[in-house]
Amino acid sequence: MSENNGQKRMSVVCWSADLDRVWPVLILSTTAAASGLEVNVFFTFWGLRVLQRNDVRVTGKNWMQKGESLVDRGGTDHLKLGKIHFAGAGTKMIKKLADSYHVASPTELLDMAKDLGVNLHPCQMTMDLYGLTKDDFIDGLGAPMGAASFIDMAADSDITLFI
């Protein structure tokens, strides 16, 4: 990465699709971008599913990938809590609370992140592993990339987070 006139940078790894991890990824990313930082988020492993379109259900090319997608639904509308999910009841309750306290949903925050110029990069290797293609993802993403590209971004960043 090159210099950018002293603008601060933040690079984040979004590793999980748990609601309670994705929420802070998006809250911190939007706030950093609003504060004038350049923000890069690398979505890898389970976290790649965060970028999946909400209306895409089965993904992958072979039976293993398709089977995995059936039990690992992607999209910001379908994130589950990492704890107290309770077969959906816990997640439903937290979403209801968030709604009544006017906490923005992950879907709203992801849209906001794009508007604010946050760079959202899917991990190429995980895309291959899951058999995901660009058509499975929401619009407005940065180029799919690998570990070396993230390390290059992180090496020039003032803040790096793994969430």
């Binding site: 939007t30 706030t31 609003a34 504060s35 006017h102 906001m112 508007d115």
Partner: peptide, 15 residues
């Protein structure tokens, strides 16, 4: 008013 973090700051930045 009645919005939670990070919306007040993000909306301020946009406005």
């Amino acid at each position: 008013r009645h919005l939670s973090c990070p919306l007040p700051v993000v909306r301020t930045a946009q406005a």
